[in-house]
């Protein structure tokens, strides 16, 4: 790290202030004690469905799989009260297939790009990938930051890369993945959140994870990021969105994340314009809990389409 990098590294951390990890975890433990019942629960479940980026990011994805995903995204349940999800999230090669199914509807097509998930290809290649995804019809681009540069204190490089992607996005929204598990500390997560936010535009998002590492979205890293969003908003008036991704599999978890949003960012972030869940199996659990709330009876998993559980 040269002297300039070192100075900017220290300046950033000094300006945004530290995070105490034990304190953060105690704060978020309180969200888990909130008891959401009846109407409030149903509202939260519907809202969570509407915030989903229904995701498939597998090597074995095919146009057929994408078609099925899109169908589910548009009409998760045979119930007019249940909204469609916010977006389907796919690899760039699948964007045009997804677009065929959801184009013209409220459901957006999001594409991961920038050599997802590692980001370890030349910048030129990565930017070309973004360009291609946007050209194929992607409404939203999920990119991952250069963690190596961040950890080496090369903040300018991190920022420049994000700026280049913003450039390529045009009118597509950008979601900047910090890959929190590789940043390791809450201090780093907070710093990376600020680095990203000062480069992206109002309506863009910061996002926890690719879902491809061992640790993904937690209430703890969600809290650090939404506090950063709050601080950035109060300071600049620029509202950045948030997307926890990976690891959120149950309705109960999703409600806890939403309570965190309610109590930290307030009502204006309780919308899919500003908050998303990156998940796949979460959707069926949300639907299952919605049916349970309405009928009073616990539901079998195989009542719901595309369920992983067949037993």
């Amino acid at each position: 790290m040269n002297a300039g990098q070192s100075a900017s590294f220290r300046r950033l951390f000094d300006e945004i202030g530290p995070v105490d990890s034990v304190g953060i975890e105690e704060r978020v433990a309180k969200y888990a004690t909130r008891s959401i019942k009846k109407g409030a629960k149903l509202w939260g479940l519907y809202r969570a469905v509407s915030m989903l980026d229904l995701t498939t990011l597998e090597g074995k994805d095919t146009p057929g799989k994408i078609a099925s995903l899109c169908q589910k995204a548009l009409r998760p349940l045979d119930d007019p009260n249940v909204p469609s999800v916010a977006a389907v999230c796919v690899y760039p090669a699948m964007v045009r297939h997804a677009k065929k199914h959801v184009g013209g509807t409220a459901v957006k097509v999001a594409s991961v790009a920038m050599a997802f998930p590692s980001g370890q290809t030349p910048l030129k290649t990565r930017l070309a990938e973004v360009k291609a995804a946007v050209a194929a019809g992607a409404d939203e681009i999920d990119m991952v930051i250069n963690r190596g540069a961040f950890l080496a204190g090369e903040f300018a490089e991190v920022r420049d890369e994000i700026a280049a992607v913003v450039e390529e996005c045009g009118s597509a929204a950008l979601k900047v993945i910090l890959e929190v598990s590789e940043l390791e500390t809450y201090d780093n997560i907070r710093a990376a959140s600020f680095l990203a936010m000062e480069t992206i535009r109002a309506g863009d998002f910061i996002k926890t994870s690719t879902g491809k590492t061992s640790l993904n979205a937690t209430l703890g890293n969600n809290q650090v990021m939404i506090e950063a969003i709050r601080d950035f908003y109060l300071d600049t008036g620029i509202a950045i969105g948030m997307k926890p991704a990976g690891g959120i599999r149950t309705a109960k978890q999703a409600l806890q994340f939403l309570i965190a949003v309610k109590e930290t960012l307030g009502d204006e972030w309780l919308t899919n314009k500003r908050y998303r869940f990156g998940a796949s199996s979460l959707l069926n659990d949300l639907l299952r809990q919605i049916e349970k709330e309405k009928s009073g009876a616990y539901q079998a998993p195989y009542y719901f389409s595309d369920a992983a559980e067949s037993y």
């Binding site: 959401i36 109407g39 409030a40 908003y233 109060l234 960012l265 307030g266 204006e268 309780l270």
Partner: peptide, 24 residues
């Protein structure tokens, strides 16, 4: 103050009644 200097009203968070908790 910074915001005021920039000539717009200070951003505020809205903690309203969009999602009230039911009795538990």
């Amino acid at each position: 103050k910074t915001s005021a200097r920039r000539g717009r009203t200070a951003p505020e968070l809205v903690f309203g009644d969009l999602w009230p908790f039911d009795p538990a």
